[in-house]
Design a protein around this nucleic acid. Structure first.
Lengths: 212, 212, 212, 212
DNA sequence: TATGAATGAGCTTTCATTCAT
DNA sequence: AATGAATGAAAGCTCATTCAT
């Protein structure tokens, strides 16, 4: 946790200082928000100087945007990586819900970053980042159609709204974890709690789209 | 708590600077986060000087905490204000879901504040604030039991998880509005969109708890 | 120590708030210096409002000057109060040295105030205050002359320098108490230590002026 | 102590801002006391910005402590530098008294700093600083013993009290210069006055320790 | 006489960013 | 590629002082 293990002086010339800065920046921005983040702290934890940071990223904002881009790149990859075509619609959807839920749990930093973005009215999300995240809608549309034809799903479900629901349940579980745990004295961090909640979320989504 | 000056329901012309500061602070903290918020800006918009801010609230943090307290006080009141006893369980639950959804929509500032709190690991939520927000669990438990006896709800539903689901769907609709709208080119702010989404959320919750 | 005993609501009208402010101000200025002193703290400890302080003393500086005047008035009185005429010169001088030493010990606040004054180049001491403190020189001059005639003192001793020596030994014992105690691990505050040191000081002064 | 930047004996043109700050800070703290001292003023006079001050010393307090340390380091050196072994005890003691007196006269800033420390109960003097200042006690003890064996000094003189007396007479001459000069209309700053007083102090000390 | 609210200047401290080496 | 030093703007906070009631 303290100091991310040094990448053993890899191939070419820079000892991976760019990567180390990026890692620490992700953590820092996610934990403190953009204004709360400190350029010094990032440089220190990354084991470099501020100079390097500015050399690679031009400014705090530049660094932030690079971090954000990386994070959105991550989810895009995760979502598009689901092989869902040779499952029946119910299994396919269940699988997607689980994977989405897991992704949020496994990438708290991403979640926190997105929270931040929303606090600032998502000013930094550009078309380029948005673009890669729209594949999921097509996948869901496809599944919904198959499900409706198979008779297992209702028809008339808007895939965007389905995605919104799936996302909401996964995102919120991670994003609001601290306040919820504190107020309602719930355990929301243990693997057990996560498992349990995940299945409830699957149930919820499936019962909503279920035919009848 | 120990902020001395009396509440005085806006007497003549200049009193009430405390209230004005509080209002602007809510807005500022919600829009910029704690670190992004500027004490100068708050004071200016409130039409006073920084000094008054410190006079009334002792520090930026003190102000933030007072704002937070007010915000949590608000939702507590809203929730405990639902008269639900002479409805059948289905109507009661529907009514609660709607009211919760509406509360989130109507109090974007509250939502943003809670986002912030979670970014900072909810350090500022104290027992006092938590306490007042737990009534909803009892209300839901009651409805669930009645529903289960009436045969309209499944048994075995944990009211905390039900609340988590309801909250997630309301909260996320507001909190992630900007990034979602941008990425998926959705309208999430118009009254129409809100109406539509609200009913989908009601459906979702009801179909989950429905018997069979 | 905490709160100087309230003067039981004396004769006329003001409940002694002026006096209480003065007492606390002496303590505050002596402990913190002029710039370190806080007007709020003085008013609070005196159990009044800042308004009263300004009403009575016009400004922080005005208060400081009044305090200083009181303090210098005190030593003047103490010194001129010594009845020394029907003692032989040695006893008279011994008595004066003791009394001066004791005065410094008993009036640490005065000592601290004078330290402060010297840090600020004694800007606040005016002729009026100086005037009353010169009697001691005449007294010493008289004793020196008698002693020289009696054959117990050397002649040619400058009474001002004698006073300077006496003052130095008393003043420094109080003023530099903290640093000395810390560096040399000495006890300088107990009655015993004071007694002991006092007699050494007497010895020192007497051996210096002694004939032979 | 943990103030990073290397001491670099004034290389080219701009380095050495640390030293310049330190010099001005000594002056400022000595003249105005800790609370009266202004960070702006120090930075300006040193020809830098406030930022550099904080960069090198972390806080106003940190700067103050560094200044203090330097000052105490100075007197330690001065005292331990006296070569006293091939003098007879009387000459040795006379030499020490003179040197101590001169040190105080030549380092008014040090004196003022110590006054300040005492006003604040010597909170900033730490063991490290105290340690180096205790050598003088051993030196005096040695001289006293030799003197007593040579028959020129009384026996039974406590070297700490001797040091206290020597210090008092030197310190007070500088520390209380302003108030004394004002009240008693004495010249205490001219070289002549200093010379004169110095010899009186020597006399005083020697007559006190003299055998009979 | 007394109290809470207000004022404004100024203080200490922080931070992103750049420069020289 | 890397380090320490420098910059300047602005942030959070404090204080003596005054006003209205």
């Amino acid at each position: 946790m303290k100091n991310a293990p040094r990448e053993r002086a890899s191939t070419k010339k820079n000892g991976g200082s760019r990567e180390r800065i990026l890692n620490e920046a992700l953590r820092e921005f996610a934990e403190k928000g953009f204004s709360g983040a400190r350029v010094d702290r990032i440089a220190n934890k990354a084991g470099t100087s501020k100079h390097m940071l500015y050399y690679h990223f031009r400014s705090k904002t530049g660094l932030y945007e690079t971090v954000l881009e990386g994070a959105y790149g991550g989810i895009r990859f995760a979502e598009s990586n689901i092989d869902v075509d040779h499952m029946n619609s119910v299994d396919a959807l269940r699988s997607i819900v689980r994977q989405s839920f897991d992704y949020h749990c496994d990438h708290e930093m991403f979640v926190r970053l997105v929270m931040n973005e929303n606090i600032h009215h998502a000013n930094h999300i550009d078309e380029h980042q948005a673009e890669g995240n729209r594949a999921i809608i097509d996948i869901l549309a496809d599944i919904l159609q198959r499900g409706s034809m198979e008779g297992s799903f209702r028809s008339g479900i808007d895939p965007k709204h389905l995605h919104l629901t799936i996302s909401a349940l996964g995102f919120h579980f991670v994003s609001n974890r601290y306040s919820f745990a504190k107020i309602f004295e719930m355990d929301l961090e243990s693997p057990r709690a996560r498992q349990e909640r995940r299945e409830l979320v699957v149930e919820t989504v499936l019962s909503w789209v279920a035919a009848h």
